[in-house]
């Protein structure tokens, strides 16, 4: 089989890095009293961004493979609900946490099998599974919040998922670890090449002997595992299961990944870009509020920012590709 050229991170990540640095500097300089750099602000971002960020890493990989997953908005609360039920029925929280991963992977496996076997657009399939799991969760939980504080307070699971190492919230460290692992998978392995090939030209990839069905299904399973992690991490921090966990993540993750330079059509993107895209979106929202923009309708500014970043990304991308060739 012909070895595919690994996309150099220097092309597809650096343009986003430039955007990230500019955004970071703008808000660092112009927020009153440089509040953006206030330790409280940085700690808050480091603690809260990984809730969506961890899942967005997987969404980025899937989009490079040319598919979407909207069902994360239901898989996250469903995993949280199952984790809650496990511990309320006497299971050790650490064991429940470990068991939730195969369950998350199974949610992903179902998505993957449905997408590759029906041939229907993943947008429609995962929209359907999102509604299906949401309905089932509604039936089971009656959408009641469930407090889990007494089960997780002062336990190893709390320290592992929501503790601090010095002044640094552990959530951001886990996020970094996931980003490195998935970055290595995407950029340094044969499987990573298969992901790019599948997203670039599915037929050509198939002709080269790549099992595109397997590639896509594994990508969905990776998302399932990341959803399981995010679900438990968030539930432990909130101290409760909430049926509204993950609401809106399905579109916010796509926005972050696209800002990070990933093409909606697949085949283009990088882990560095995805990570920076996640932070750019968060920094814009945070920075605007610190600049005392009206919090009533801050989405309007974020919407404009997303379009500007994507245009900027495309422009820089074209220039870099031209220079490269």
């Amino acid at each position: 089989m012909q070895r595919l050229k690994i996309r150099p991170i220097t092309i597809y990540g650096l343009n986003t890095a430039l955007t990230f640095i500019i955004t970071f500097l703008i808000f660092s300089i112009f927020t009153p009293d440089h509040l953006f750099l206030d330790p409280r602000n940085l700690a808050s971002m480091a603690k809260l961004t990984p809730d969506i960020g961890v899942v967005a890493l997987g969404i980025g990989i899937l989009m490079i493979a040319g598919e979407f997953d909207l069902s994360i908005a239901s898989i996250i609360p469903f995993c949280s609900y199952i984790f809650t039920q496990f511990i309320m029925n006497g299971m050790d929280p650490l064991l429940a946490f470990i068991l939730i991963f195969p369950i998350g992977a199974t949610f992903g496996l179902i998505n993957g099998l449905l997408v590759v076997s029906t041939g229907l657009p993943s947008f429609i399939i995962t929209l359907s599974t999102m509604l299906f799991w949401k309905g089932l969760l509604f039936g089971l939980s009656r959408m009641m919040p469930i407090s889990i504080l007494k089960y997780v307070s002062d336990t190893p699971i709390e320290k592992i998922l929501t503790g601090q190492i010095g002044p640094v919230p552990i959530q951001i460290i886990w996020f970094g670890i996931f980003a490195v692992i998935l970055g290595l998978l995407l950029h340094q392995t044969k499987f990573g090449n298969w992901i790019y090939a599948t997203g670039s030209n599915q037929e050509a990839a198939r002709a080269m002997g790549i099992n595109v069905r397997m590639v896509k299904t594994v990508c969905y399973m990776i998302i399932g595992v990341l959803c399981a992690w995010a679900a438990v991490m968030q539930a432990v921090r909130l101290g409760s299961f909430a049926a509204t966990q993950g609401i809106g993540f399905e579109l916010k993750t796509i926005a972050a990944v696209v800002v990070g330079g990933t093409a909606l059509t697949g085949g283009v993107g990088s882990m560095l870009g995805i990570v920076l895209g996640i932070f750019i979106i968060r920094i814009v929202e945070n920075g605007l509020i610190l600049l005392k923009a009206p919090v009533f309708g801050v989405e309007m500014f974020i919407g404009v920012a997303v379009v500007i970043f994507v245009l900027l990304n495309s422009f820089v991308n074209r220039r870099l590709v031209r220079l490269n060739s």
Partner: peptide, 14 residues
């Protein structure tokens, strides 16, 4: 979504 709510409130307070 609770994380969004919490981050907006924290940003506002800062």
């Amino acid at each position: 979504e609770m994380t969004t709510v919490e981050s907006r409130m924290t940003d506002y307070l800062v």
